[in-house]
Design a protein around this nucleic acid. Structure first.
Lengths: 347, 347
DNA sequence: TTTCGCTGAGAAACCGGTTTCTCACCTAGA
DNA sequence: TCTAGGTGAGAAACCGGTTTCTCAGCGAAA
């Protein structure tokens, strides 16, 4: 059949630049010049070459160019979990932004194994020109090593104390502040925070936001409890939430909040009548729950886009003045989306 | 600062195999042999080389190996939309399965632009050893060209009439059959199908499933309506659903079903009392809606895993007997998950 | 002791491009 | 008319590995 024949056969060998050169009666150098549009070639000869290229169906070997040019036009993106909507959005952002600059994306998924991150990052970087590290779980010392070994690296959602490294992170502290102020404004005086993974830097940011808010509202009581980051974790936390006596719940993310909402409905707990619930992220489903979830909108895809843009800026002026392009972390701000899951505190 | 110094400086040049050879006092060939673990080297010399490698921090250039070996250990995955949970799951499956075989994944996102798919696929393939095409929107003739130009290619969720091409697809026709039988069993006699994108092959499979089911149940009336594939599309279809007079709704996917459920709650329509709603896919949220969504479980990540496995099988015996490894489409079967959104038809 | 065969390491070719270097040729100025 | 300068194309080096080819040196068999 057709497909197999082209894949094998005696003339199956790939068409190289030498074939084109022979066909057009010129040198390989000239073919290279024509293919790359260098103006220094006689139009008549260029036409001959173009002709030969078309006749033979020549496509330059990307691999050979990579070696010759010392550049792959590829960027590696390493995420802890490809199943997490957050990282999917970041990946999408990087992919689209990089495509606009002629770069492809190589993905690596460490499946939440912090120990595997270092090797995965360095390995991926070896076949790419740069690296985007998303929400790395590794500890600071290891991260520093990776930043050196895999440079240039952009880091998403984790601040590192290195101004030359392009960074973008969501300001989860600010997001938590918005939420707390909203709930306090509704009369709530006893809140419960359902926390995410301990190792997660973004959870630490949220905790710091809680501290700030607590300082602003001395009359407020904020309990904390670590539950995880999934729908199931939120679902399973319902009993503990009810036992706590809090009138408002601040969840680490929308998944937890939505899982909790689902369970509260099963238990016939009125939301927001008896309990107000807030999430973080504003994933698409947040608008469609019952009741619709009050949350903080996080521009996740934007994180990826920004990360790429700042990384690309560093790559372009490599050796010049990296600091001019990368001036430390750029914090993205959230926006409170008030929906049906929050209301006045019960009397 | 440290990071910038390593990136530049006079000794910034990358360590090559020649450096190691000099340092160890051997030839480059020998270094290559040692690094690749070819047993044909004297242990004492091998030790000297290993030593030099460690001292210099040598890491072979992936790019150079790619050229030399004529192989990149990379597979391209092209999807219509990285924002779609379905394709995310497939991507995750391919990524993890390929990683187990020592392959990395390069992602391409065509943003639902069918015209861009051909170039994207061929371009991505040029820097990879193989290609996985997910739910391609291009028409048959173009697809055939791509299959030839980018071989080896695996196709997911679209059947092509070419037995040598490894294929995996969800049997959406069977899935629809399960749903219809379920609803008929509950006494429903008038159903409405909320259809997905016209260009989508998987929508055509569902339609064929409807035809089969209609043939099995002559007393049954099935209306059809095209709405799209998003939460919003489902939400917006509620009025039309109510107007139709159907007692059961079969949605193209869970997103539509969940969007519809959300709107029905707002309109105070009892589910399943007045209307039963069913989705397809069993995305994580399906279990957490109110009421929980009856749907067909689709092993999405499995699609990616299978696609890779069959593609890899073809790659290994390239030139031998492709047909032995790839025997046409393998259809994955769904499993009905009965939850709270379906019940007896109203009297 | 001589010869044959085997082992193991280096020389060199190769993968398929890009780019520097070199030089023939053409034109313009003296 | 002769020469300096400029243009454009080919030869060759290069990117950094792998692999074939070659041959020195050794042990075993005659």
């Amino acid at each position: 059949m057709a497909i197999r024949d082209t894949a094998r056969g005696d003339t199956a060998r790939r068409v190289t630049i030498a074939d084109v050169a022979t066909e057009a009666g010129v040198s390989r150098a000239t073919v290279s010049r024509v293919v790359n549009g260098l103006a220094t070639v006689d139009p008549a000869i260029a036409a001959r070459v173009d002709d030969a290229v078309a006749r033979l169906g020549y496509r330059p070997s990307e691999t050979a160019r990579n070696l010759s040019l010392g550049r792959t036009n590829t960027v590696a993106v390493v995420v802890p979990d490809l199943g997490n909507p957050m990282f999917q959005a970041i990946l999408r952002g990087v992919t689209r932004a990089a495509a606009a600059d002629g770069y492809r994306v190589l993905v690596g998924d460490t499946q939440e194994d912090a120990a595997a991150e270092k090797d995965a990052a360095i390995e991926a970087r070896r076949r790419c020109d740069a690296l985007v590290l998303c929400g790395p779980r590794m500890d600071d010392e290891v991260l520093d090593e990776v930043l050196v070994a895999a440079s240039p690296v952009a880091v998403v959602n984790r601040a590192v104390d290195e101004p030359a490294v392009p960074q973008v992170a969501m300001d989860y502290g600010q997001a938590i502040g918005l939420i707390i102020d909203h709930l306090v404004g509704l009369g709530h005086r006893h809140l419960l925070y359902l926390g995410g993974p301990i190792a997660s830097a973004s959870n630490r940011l949220r905790m710091a936001g809680l501290d700030d808010a607590a300082a602003r509202h001395p009359e407020l009581r904020i309990d904390r409890r670590t539950v995880g980051s999934s729908l199931d974790a939120g679902w399973a936390s319902a009993e503990a939430v009810l036992d706590s006596g809090a009138t408002g719940v601040v969840a680490y993310n929308d998944l937890i909040a939505l899982g909790l909402l689902s369970r509260l409905r099963e238990l016939d707990v009125a939301v927001p009548g008896r309990l107000s619930v807030v999430g973080v992220d504003d994933i698409p489903f947040a608008r469609f729950s019952t009741p619709p979830l009050t949350t903080v909108h996080v521009p996740q895809e934007e994180l990826g886009v920004r990360a790429w843009q700042r990384l690309f800026a560093v790559m372009r002026q490599d050796g010049d003045d990296p600091d001019a392009a990368a001036d430390g972390t750029r914090w993205l701000q959230g926006r409170l989306e008030v929906r049906g899951s929050t209301g006045a505190a019960p009397a």
